[in-house]
Amino acid sequence: MQSPAFRVVRALLLLLIGIFFLFPIVWVLLMSFMTNVDILRSPPSPFFVPTLRNYVALISGHLSTSSGEVQIDYMHNLLNSVILSTCSVIVSLILGVPAAYAFARFKFRGGEDMAFTLLSFRFAPPLLVLLPLLGYFQAIGLYDTYFGLIWVYQLITLPLVLWITRGYFEDVSEDLELAYRLDGHSWLSTFFRISIPLARPGIAAAGLLSFIFAWNNFIFALILGSSSVQPVTVGALAFITASGIEYGQIAAALVLSVIPTLILAIFTQRYLVEGLSLGAIKG
């Protein structure tokens, strides 16, 4: 039995940790409902009149600063983020999951080298690749297109999908697939009916993680696109205006930009938990 003292101490410690990690998030959430004046007040006060003007400004695209009206297209950036991240992850899953299965199941010449090469994309500083790519992209008309960006985003998302799901496929006993094939099923239907469902937690984790990485990417679109395709990370630069930094609007923008990832995380959680409960496969 746990003593009451132990439980009280544990609750206090948990609270402390919770506050430490949640405080910045709560503070940003509060900031998003404040005016710049409230935010910059010294000493800071938790008492203020909440306002929606930050959100209104973002959604309508009219940013009023002390030095006049600025047009920003934050909602368009948000849409770009959604398009770029979603499409990149989908492409990576379509390419990466079968590839991961192949790397996990079949030993073929150069297999390890190929898998490692894909991982090595994560080692190089992105700028090293991006500057030469800029030249190519402008030459072949991929500069400032979704297609071009989704392509380079594969440098981030594909290795993640490949290496995470590969581990899960390796954990699925090959005999399970063979048993299914003996029952008269083809190789392909075995892949879809047995291997994929058993690796689903890994696929979900890889999808979520690569979505987050894609979402937070800044430098690819900064260099390889203009504002028409740039995501929120780049779009947020617009809040640094001549007359200062619009903290309230940045906070509101942050809150908005977290929402899609949050929805995806909640949706994926089901599969992640399923993975934990299926983990105990004996034999």
């Binding site: 005999d175 063979l178 094939r181 029952d183 008269g184 034999g283």
Partner: peptide, 28 residues
């Protein structure tokens, strides 16, 4: 292919499908 040979096998490592009940595993 294995699917065309019409043989049944009990595996050394059992190879049961974890998301299915025992009944469904047998009836698969």
């Amino acid at each position: 292919k294995p699917s065309e040979r019409d043989v049944a096998m009990a595996f050394e490592g059992y190879a049961l499908y974890p998301p299915l009940r025992v009944r469904e595993n047998i009836a698969f």
